[in-house]
């Protein structure tokens, strides 16, 4: 095992994180024990953050102790690995609007003491602001596949992310338009972020996801 970012490991071209809930799987991933430590394989086809790391993300702002606001938690696939990385002292708030995915997600929150479920619409940050009052968020992560994804991201950043905080935004071109070229969409959406962020890196997620990019950015204002 080689540690490529704090808490993220690579072996034979595969990614792993240390299992924060030993013995338990979240989405059928492989478990691997090495020198008494249990690792979970992090599937680059199932998680856009893993795909971004695989495709050369320079900085991973999520580390031990981070406080993460995660919009579009879904069934918690990616969040479970974030939970592994941030560990005992970290906390991640997972927001999703769909009660269908929440059912699975709640059971993962029960197994992992550093993730908190919030069943709300990410486009209405005021609805869950009260839960985040006592926590200083360092990283805003978003993957909601909605047409107004950039606006949702900016709105949440305004509410919760202090200056110098990091953002990771997964952009799905096909949520925005079926007709325009993916590249044009990425540029337009990334340009919108410039209002609050300095763009640090834009990573295409092919071949793991089609027409998706991950934007890494840092809040400037």
């Amino acid at each position: 095992m080689q540690e490529i970012f704090p808490g993220v490991f690579a072996k034979e071209k595969m990614l792993f994180t240390k299992n924060f809930a030993p013995g338990k799987r979240v989405y059928g991933e492989r478990l691997l024990s090495e020198s008494g430590v249990e690792y979970r394989q992090w599937d680059t086809f199932r998680s856009k953050l893993a795909a971004a790391i695989k495709n050369g993300l320079d900085t991973l702002p999520i580390k031990a102790g981070s406080k993460v606001l995660y919009l579009g938690a879904a069934e918690g696939t990616t969040l479970s690995h974030i939970s592994d990385i941030i560990g005992e002292k970290g906390a991640a708030f997972g927001v999703d609007v769909s009660e269908r995915v929440m059912r699975k997600f709640i059971s993962i929150c029960e197994e992992r003491k550093n993730i908190v479920p919030i069943l709300e619409d990410a486009a209405k940050p005021w609805a869950y602001g009260k839960y985040l009052e006592g926590t200083r968020i360092n990283v805003l992560y978003q993957d909601v596949s909605q047409r107004d994804q950039a606006e949702i991201f900016l709105k949440n950043a305004e509410y919760f992310l202090p200056k110098g905080g990091w953002g990771l935004l997964a952009i799905k071109a096909r949520s925005i338009s079926q007709r325009k070229k993916a590249q044009d969409i990425f540029e337009e959406e990334t340009a919108k972020l410039a209002r609050l962020f300095i763009i640090r890196q834009v990573i295409n997620l092919a071949p793991f996801e089609k027409d998706h990019t991950m934007v890494l950015c840092e809040k400037s204002g």
Binding site: A91, E99, M102, R103, I106, C109, E110, K113, I115, V116, P117, I118, L119, Y131, G134, T135
Partner: peptide, 17 residues
Amino acid sequence: EIEQLRKALIRKTREQV
């Protein structure tokens, strides 16, 4: 505090679902 919040939110989300 976060641990308390987490427990409360798990309970609340469960109810909502």
